[in-house]
Amino acid sequence: MANIGIVITVCGAALCAILAGIGSAVGVMAAGKASAGVTSENPDLFGKVLVLQALPGTQGIYGFLIAILIMVRVGLLGGNVANLTAAQGWQFFFAALPMAVVGLISGICQGKAAVAAIHMTGKQPDASGKGITMTALVETYAILALLASILLMFGITI
């Protein structure tokens, strides 16, 4: 029988995948629109702007990663579900939060940076490398959040 600890843990894992996924979806959508505009003017730039468009997509993967790691940790994927107390459940819930919240916001922000970089690439195709760097800087914070979530999650004793 499922206990309350597992319920709260699943909430955290789901929230992480949902919010980070939304962040990436919004970011990639914005970048995709800009890419379509640039590509309509200059189809040769497709390869360059595609890389830029893909950049805000990592947050969704990180969120998914935390969700899976939590599931593995509490045995939801292995079959032997751990018997968690409510306190442990809340610990997993909050461990998932950094990635969930930062993933949502940084995904959207990185999308905006990617849009600017794509416009820049449209005007100066040679500058796409610089655009990639500018956009990738935003991701630092998603990576820090990912690390915080991972370390928190592995620190919980069950």
């Binding site: 993967i61 990663l65 630092t140 990576i143 690390l147």
Partner: peptide, 8 residues
């Protein structure tokens, strides 16, 4: 980030 990417 090396850890994060290798884990991902």
């Amino acid at each position: 980030r090396i850890l994060a990417l290798s884990l991902a």
